[in-house]
Write a protein that binds this DNA or RNA. Structure first.
Lengths: 155, 155
DNA sequence: TCGATATCGTTATGATCATAACAATATCGG
DNA sequence: CCGATATTGTTATGATCATAACGATATCGA
């Protein structure tokens, strides 16, 4: 006679009994990113901007005009994805595009005056948001986290 | 006469000169998750499974049958999202669904035999994949990372 | 010069994601 | 008992994401 009902919650039961999803970095990273992203949307959502859109604007603010492809690499987005983001930002007149005269393959993206003004407004909000996300960590732990995450991301 | 052309790359120029996108946790977390997710797809992509799909199967393997809603919470997915994942897994006969007899609102999800067999095949691959992702870190650093990420994710 | 190769942007497909609104069912308090 | 409230699952909308295939343009080497 089996110990409990076959329909029971099956606390651990089968094989690989010591495996836990929580022990997989990918799962942890996904949840941590969800939290960070949620914090950002809570703060800048009223501007109707997503985290990738903000990152795109911020990168343009840092670097000035960039080709669409390079811009994508600098915000870690595939060509097909950065294209859509740029289209949405362009529709809102936050960025402007023009063709590179010397290399006809390239589309140069740059902030408009409105885009620049918006980024300058959002940067302090983003910094506060980062502080919120990092709130559970002490100062030295935050530094450590940056080091570890940076090495993970760069492979 | 201005020092350079107005159209120049604008290395730093404007306001908030010390702001860097790299200093924002969200951006770092997103890139690190991209890396981890990419590592997983490289290894289990031939099974036509994504990271969230694998997480769903793994959770069911750990816990046995769960309501769709609870399952979603346990893999950090919104109700609308876990629904789509379950539909795809169900279409491939990796999970089966039935209504809870005592609470007619609930849909109970459980692994099929094929689903169970697949998870048992994938678990060692996932563990190896996690090792790959963590390769840049030493043992004590990995432990530290888990601690920090866990606290971030839980808020 | 010219052909192979590489890069850039586009298109298409399919899978996450989050949010809001909604119907059906449970639960709880008076 | 029964109405207010909460929970579950669905639907719709819109924004990421990754991948593959493709034309256009650049670049490089023979």
């Amino acid at each position: 006679m089996p110990r409990t009902s076959t329909k029971a919650p099956a606390p651990a039961g089968r094989l690989a009994s010591d495996y836990r999803l929580e022990d997989q970095v990918g799962f942890l990273l996904r949840r941590a990113y969800q939290r960070a992203s949620s914090n950002l949307v809570d703060r800048i959502g009223s501007y109707d901007l997503t985290a990738p859109q903000y990152a795109t604007l911020a990168r343009l603010y840092e670097r000035g005009a960039l080709s669409q492809n390079l811009l994508g690499r600098l915000v870690a987005m595939e060509p097909a994805n950065i294209r859509d983001v740029v289209l949405r930002l362009k529709k809102r007149r936050l960025v402007a595009t023009r063709r590179d005269p010397t290399d006809k393959r390239l589309i140069l993206i740059d902030l408009t005056a409105a885009g620049t003004a918006l980024v300058e407004q959002l940067i302090p909000i983003e910094i506060a948001c980062t502080a919120t996300t990092l709130a559970p960590l002490k100062a030295n732990e935050r530094k450590q986290l940056y080091d570890l995450l940076g090495r993970l991301a760069d492979g």
